[in-house]
Computed example of a mutant assay.
Amino acid sequence: MHLLRNSLDHGIEPPADRLAAGKPERGRVTLSASHSGGNVVIAIGDDGRGIDAEAVRNKAVERGLIAPDADMAEKDVLELIFAPGFSTAEKVSDISGRGVGMDVVKRNIEALRGTVEVASALGKGTTVTIKLPLTLAIIDGFSVLVGGDSFIVPLVNLRGFQERFPVEEVRTVENMERMGELIPVVSLRRLFEVPGGQPGYERVVVTEVEGEMVGFCVDKVIGRQQAVIKSLDDCYRHLKWISGTTINGDGSISLILDVPQLVRFVRAKEESRLQTARASRTLSQ
């Protein structure tokens, strides 16, 4: 509801401004919902004035959220609208500005293990996309082992399996050839710091996330399994890459991986590691 109000109040221009810009006098706000992979995708779009990225940047600098010389892509600048209390509106109206900021919107969506993204073109409009996982009690997946730890990879993300024979020291993220193309592969043993020696033979579980192939290296693929999802305790809710747990037939417990969130988690860790490495090299010079 808050996003719809924003489109009506901050997005759609007055009729005179729209005519002056060569647009139809009446604005259009579109609400759509679809099913994609394991998610429900909700999009709220308008053909209004769009978000002025430069205005957002200036406001963020003014509030001390970013440094004046910060080098940020436009997509990252637009994400600043989700900062607590952030607003570029010059005045509050009865339609929006009801004490619920975009930070609250994002927090509530993330509490449902969802994501929210914004795309905008100045003078053309804005689209906010919400992705929420399907709340199914039972999912189909493949059970895999890493050391003594058991995980479930949802079938909806799975695209195949491949073998790997590591001959050098294994890194957390590497590349591997698959069908003539290089894809990133993630060692779950290194990522989760699973105790035990590195095996000389691994299975790579190939998944697809937002059109990109990503492999996850495991010790063994047990087989297909229907998993009854058990929710995580509140103290583990910050582990967004875990959808929940399931109890196996032998009484053991498997963690159900949220593959898209896991890919984002790995990407953030790698970017942080690379930034630290670059800063270290700069200091040494």
Results as ranks from 00 to 15, higher is better:
residue 89 A to W: 08
residue 125 G to N: 01
residue 277 A to T: 15
residue 33 A to C: 09
residue 6 N to P: 04
residue 212 E to S: 09
residue 150 S to M: 12
residue 111 A to F: 12
residue 67 A to Y: 09
residue 27 G to M: 05
residue 285 Q to P: 10
residue 141 G to S: 07
residue 141 G to V: 06
residue 134 L to P: 03
residue 159 R to W: 10
residue 231 S to K: 08
residue 78 L to M: 10
residue 57 R to P: 02
residue 6 N to Q: 08
residue 28 R to V: 11
residue 283 L to Y: 15
residue 214 V to E: 02
residue 233 D to G: 12
residue 137 A to G: 14
residue 255 L to Y: 12
residue 196 G to L: 10
residue 265 F to Q: 10
residue 70 A to K: 04
residue 4 L to D: 01
residue 96 S to G: 12
residue 99 G to F: 06
residue 104 V to M: 12
residue 157 N to P: 06
residue 43 A to Y: 00
residue 143 S to A: 14
residue 64 G to I: 05
residue 189 R to Y: 02
residue 1 M to C: 12
residue 164 R to V: 04
residue 56 V to G: 04
residue 275 Q to L: 15
residue 128 V to P: 00
residue 108 N to F: 15
residue 266 V to T: 09
residue 80 L to I: 06
residue 44 I to A: 01
residue 284 S to T: 15
residue 272 S to V: 14
residue 56 V to H: 04
residue 187 S to F: 05
residue 105 V to T: 08
residue 17 D to R: 11
residue 114 G to N: 00
residue 85 G to Q: 09
residue 194 V to I: 14
residue 171 R to C: 14
residue 115 T to L: 02
residue 53 A to I: 04
residue 137 A to D: 14
residue 140 D to V: 03
residue 96 S to T: 07
residue 173 V to L: 12
residue 115 T to G: 01
residue 246 T to K: 01
residue 190 R to F: 03
residue 105 V to H: 04
